[in-house]
Amino acid sequence: MLSTNDRTVYNEEQELFREQVRKFFDAKLHPHLARWEEEEIVDRQFWLDCGEAGLLCPTVPEEYGGLGLDFRYNAIIGEELCYAGSGAGLSIQNDIVADYILAYGSEEQKREWLPKMITGEVITAIAMTEPGTGSDLQGVKTTARKDGNHYVIQGSKTYITNGQNADLVIVVAKTDPELGSKGISLLLMEVDREGFARGRNLDKIGQHSADTSELFFNDVRVPATNCLGEEGMGFAYLMSQLPQERLTIAIGAQAAAQRAFDEGLNFVKERKAFGKTVFDFQNTRFVLADLATKIQVGWAHIDWALKRLIDGELTTAQASAAKLWHTELQNEVCDAALQLHGGAGYMNEYPIAQLWRDARVSRIYGGTNEIMKEVIGRSL
């Protein structure tokens, strides 16, 4: 169980919410984790169950069917999900898509989509990455040509989380390719539109239960009213939402690091070698002491960053630093904890194997860690 005794950002009411999340995951998540890893997708019923339990889009105002809570509730869901070792794409819906629609959507768009996202009836995705474009979003090639009162989308996307399950996709496209970043717009696209096709569920190193897809747009027509916010403002919108997205990644990485540490600690206290437990060796204790210290610092930093986000003070550079530091920590802890398992760590039957596999992508998505350093460096 994820210990929160020393946390400073949560109050009693939020810890009660955490207990509800844990009970829900015990009943609806943990019994299915292994099967979802094998099938490489999470059941749609799980999304409906999450909606019924109040675990989808808790920050959405009550007027749209939400709970009107602050981002700490999203963070609790993310922490518990990542500590459990699940790749379910709830954070895409809760922390990213819902906020885009709230911040930039028309009243009609909000009333159409937010209530369905809250119940789990609608699963969402955001399509940024392309086969030739990753961290540099200004380089997207997908176009959305204006044709009367419609946009015609042409292009493809890849590595899209929730791509197989999604009912609604925010598509990042060039509405005016000649304007560079000022020609990028965000379009809401329902997946039943003619010309849209999903590719295969991509075969990844880790995070197997997170369905990740290629998406293809062959002259997909969407009404002009599906433009999210103003035409040409898409890149600015993407940049303004980055602090929360990158903090979400940092939170998940920190929780996963804690789980990996706990798995390593428990294993070495039980494993015997040369007549004593592996924990009794000084090297083992020193490795764990070093990791425990970094994890302690990590939780203090997460609480600091969370408070700044809630107060509207978290900058892009600070969020990038959080993403950089916590994902590097996650990979360090997972690797060390696997090493402490010895040969058992290489066996998929042990949780540390999955935690280790799943960790590798955290230094890539949401902007690579090399890009994080560039963002931080530019702010100095």
Rank of each mutant, 00 (worst) to 15 (best):
T161A: 15
T161Y: 10
N165T: 11
D167V: 07
V169G: 04
V169W: 00
I170M: 15
E178P: 03
E178Y: 03
S181L: 02
I184E: 02
S185G: 00
L186E: 11
L186S: 14
L187H: 06
L187I: 09
L188P: 00
L188F: 01
M189I: 02
M189Q: 03
E190T: 08
E190A: 11
V191G: 05
D192L: 08
R193P: 10
E194N: 04
F196Q: 07
R198G: 08
R198D: 04
G199P: 11
G199D: 09
R200G: 15
N201A: 05
L202C: 02
K204S: 15
I205G: 06
I205R: 12
N218Q: 13
D219L: 05
V220P: 00
C227N: 13
C227R: 11
L228I: 14
E231N: 06
E231R: 08
G234A: 04
A236K: 13
L238M: 12
M239E: 08
L242H: 08
L247E: 09
T248H: 02
T248K: 08
I251D: 05
A253E: 08
A256W: 05
A257C: 13
Q258V: 05
Q258W: 01
F261I: 06
D262W: 05
E263R: 02
L265S: 04
N266C: 07
N266G: 10
N266M: 09
F267H: 15
V268E: 01
K269D: 06
A273Y: 06
A273M: 13
